[in-house]
Design a protein around this nucleic acid. Structure first.
Lengths: 226, 226
DNA sequence: CCTTTTCTCGTCATCATGACGATAATCCTC
DNA sequence: GAGGATTATCGTCATGATGACGAGAAAAGG
């Protein structure tokens, strides 16, 4: 039986929270098509390589970081016949959530990788859509999982965790209610015993990510139209 | 630049509720590899065909039904290097939820398509995993969306909807509390005005699927370990 | 007419949440 | 060092959602 052949790529939606807003890692394309445009980092899946392995490899190459406590999961696949003018290319998109770390550019593929605020449009290929899907996935996952901690360093305060929610959801959250929710939901966070020092205001206790896979009950954002 | 080439297939996890239990549409493989084994229906993505179009085409071919009010969504992609002994094949799995309809076998590809209870293992390729992912997706979607109605005919009773939840989640639900929840959650169901007749017990009002994309608040299943 | 079955509506205690007051513990400024 | 600013943490209260369960309504079948 004969069948069409495809190239298969992985594209990465790498999100972080910095300066109070959600940012995505983008690269400027050096070659046609879409030369000079911003695009999601990504690349071809190699022979003998699993999809997840390819995503982890690309993430390491683009960020120059050995997986620093973040989170990586498959997002969705995109394969419109005309999505790449060079031919039939199916891309498997992955979503990565990382703490705010500088992107090293020396000695990596990430010649022009940069954190950009989400919301800019005009990315190459169908990357606008992929990015939008990734952001919606991240927003939704924060409701039902403790994954907000993937945006934080290994130890963090409740306030830092709340600021992640506020940045990703784009809405303000009452600090007192959030504190109650975060500390009372089993497996959300676990105290380290330590505290912050040197900042403004009362020192805050430090927490690590909890061991729950799911928040129960979830932490639902306010839906538009209620 | 050179890169590996892949075949791309779509595989379908087609679920329905019948006889009080969750069933999946399986086909018996007629050729090697895995000849004689049960497998998910699926096939190659054609030249000039979008992934979603391929899934809809396969669904129509396998069930012989023009999309009968069900639901179809992308599930995930699977591309382990050794998942198909014939070579590098990436499959994009789709999840379909259908009302319980007979599977016509005449004049279709579905030479041996059958509804099988979920839970049997030993499917071809990595289809055990794909099926498990599809079931978990369906269970989860029932919590946050009105999609349970996709398992029902266009008009249905609250009891029928409840039985969908009980079959998919595998747990009993209090009919009175479920009735309150279904009728009071905005956009979950909308009454048609009609009623059942001829059955045992008091006639039940008929409903259609509501127009909400999300249930708010959601209808959470009891989590193990609470 | 009575029983059985199933649907529908109500009640009540409990829990989660949103709104917000109050106190605690630090830093900064004078 | 006194007082204010800032942030963290704890508490209170009204409201809404939920689980458990009682009870009436509307049919079928003897």
């Amino acid at each position: 039986m004969s069948y069409p052949v495809f190239a298969v790529t992985v594209d990465l939606v790498v999100l972080t929270v910095r300066e109070g807003g959600l940012h995505v890692l983008l690269v400027r394309r050096g070659i046609e098509p879409y030369q000079g445009k911003w695009a999601l980092p990504g690349g071809f899946v190699l022979e003998d390589e699993d999809l997840g392995s390819a995503a982890r490899r690309e993430l390491a190459e683009e960020t120059g970081l050995a997986d620093a406590g973040g989170h990586l999961e498959q997002l969705a696949s995109y394969g419109a016949p005309d999505r790449d003018p060079r031919g039939r290319v199916v891309t498997v998109a992955y979503l990565a959530l990382l703490p705010d770390l500088p992107v090293p550019t020396a000695g990596t593929d990430a010649a022009e990788a940069e954190w950009r605020p989400v919301g800019e449009l005009g990315l190459a290929f169908d990357h606008d859509r992929i990015l939008a899907d990734g952001i919606e996935r991240a927003r939704s996952k924060l409701e039902y999982t403790p994954l907000a901690a993937a945006f934080c360093p290994p130890e963090f305060t409740i306030a830092a965790l709340r600021q992640v929610y506020e940045a990703v959801w784009g809405e303000a959250i009452d600090p007192r209610n959030f504190h109650r929710k975060a500390t009372s939901t089993p497996g959300f966070v676990s105290p380290t015993g330590g505290s912050t020092e040197g900042g403004a205001g009362r020192p805050a206790r430090l927490y690590r990510r909890g061991d729950a896979a799911l928040l129960n009950p979830p932490l639902l954002r306010r839906r538009p139209g209620d």
